[in-house]
Amino acid sequence: MEFCDECGSMMKAEDELWVCDSCGNKTPKDPEANYVVTEDQEASEVIETSKGDEQSALPTTEAHCPECGNDRARWYMQQIRAADESETRFFICTECEHKWREDDN
């Protein structure tokens, strides 16, 4: 792993160069170095997911949907207020996809 001398970002290997995606800096690779590429690195690619895929990966719980009355919802937590306050729980109905939140009061 190499880091950019200009901005400190991690650099990517391209042919005989290290290239920084952040600032565009290019540095030649050391011909004496023994670079090891794992199978994960060799096969890495961007996988696009749809919104439905993200939601189906969320855990489910018992929660009453205010729109359709269904009793199951997917949920996640997100910090939307100050760091010293608790996270907000978001629910997505498994039937109608209605989204609502629950704050700690």
Rank of each mutant, 00 (worst) to 15 (best):
E48H: 10
T38V: 01
I92N: 15
R101N: 14
N105E: 13
K26V: 13
A83R: 11
T94C: 11
E102R: 10
P66F: 07
R89M: 15
E2D: 07
V19W: 00
P66E: 03
V19P: 00
G24A: 03
E87Q: 13
K26R: 15
I92F: 05
D5E: 15
E67N: 13
K26W: 04
E85T: 14
P59N: 04
E95V: 13
E54G: 04
V19C: 09
R72L: 11
E42V: 02
E62H: 09
D15S: 12
S9L: 01
E32S: 15
S44Y: 08
V19R: 07
Y35L: 14
C96M: 06
T60F: 01
S56D: 12
T61S: 10
P28N: 03
C7V: 02
E32L: 12
S56C: 03
K26C: 08
L17Y: 11
A83M: 11
P59R: 01
T27G: 01
N34C: 03
S86I: 05
N25W: 06
A83I: 14
C68T: 09
S44Q: 11
K29H: 02
D5I: 05
M10I: 09
S9I: 03
E54V: 07
S86L: 12
C65E: 00
I47M: 09
E85F: 08
D103R: 12
P59I: 06
E16Q: 10
T61I: 12
S9F: 09
T94Y: 07
D104K: 08
N105P: 15
D5T: 11
K99Y: 01
E6Y: 08
N70S: 10
Q41V: 09
W18G: 00
C20I: 03
C20N: 06
P66A: 01
E97H: 13
C20W: 00
S44G: 00
A73M: 05
E87G: 03
E48W: 09
S9M: 08
Q79H: 07
T61P: 01
T94W: 04
E6V: 11
C68E: 04
H64W: 04
